[in-house]
Amino acid sequence: MVELYGLIFVVVFFGLILVFAWLGRRRARRYLRDIPAFTKLRRGIGLAVEAGQRLHISLGWGGVSGLQGASGLVGLSMLQRIARAASISDRPPISTSGEPTLAILAQDTLKNVYHTIGAPNQYKPEQGQVSGLTPLTYTAGAIPVMYDQQVAVNLLAGHFGSEVGLLADAAERSGSMILAGSDSLPAQATLYAAAQEPLIGEELFAGGAYIQAGASHLASVKAQDVMRWLLVGVMLVGAILKLAGVL
């Protein structure tokens, strides 16, 4: 029975994304609330390109499978959009990750971006690095990238633990901007205190919609809102029924 509810949930969610994507093509209107982090990210990309500085996208160490893999997938979508926007820069964007699958997908993403814009020779495999294979070694390996590669903007989008505080501190010391979001609660709490622009809750998952990564991202944000209200309703009804002694 639980499996059936799960299947219905996924099918309804899928249907909503399709409906909103179809409606979004016919009438585009402003839907998203203002999140300062993304406004600053857009501005930061422009300034970094103008100044010939680099963008650093850190994808965390969560891989692409399981719940923690979703934040890595969002990070990859954002990497693709940012790499496209910053492709004309003298210093191309660089990506670090603490998991080989993410590094290979990051390399593939960057390679495709350069192929799409007609500059395949600009792609270098070093742009998608594994900086370490455990959470702390990954952090230790990503810190020198912030210091040595003339990074202007750091975007941390993926699965991290509380060690992400070291990355936020390094970014601040190197004088670069840091925007960071994660699916993990310890990382979110750490980033709230340590990062200039933290992304709390599901804000990271809306990142693609804010940086115009595609119509499906905006559609999925709308679908998430509908599903959230649906879940809130179900929980409230469940609580009332429980109080009334029906359940």
Binding site: V10, A70, L73, S77, F205, H217, S220, R228, L231
Partner: peptide
Amino acid sequence: LGVGLGAVAAGLR
């Protein structure tokens, strides 16, 4: 809950 919904949306995309 929000993270879970975001994760499902990312997988569905």
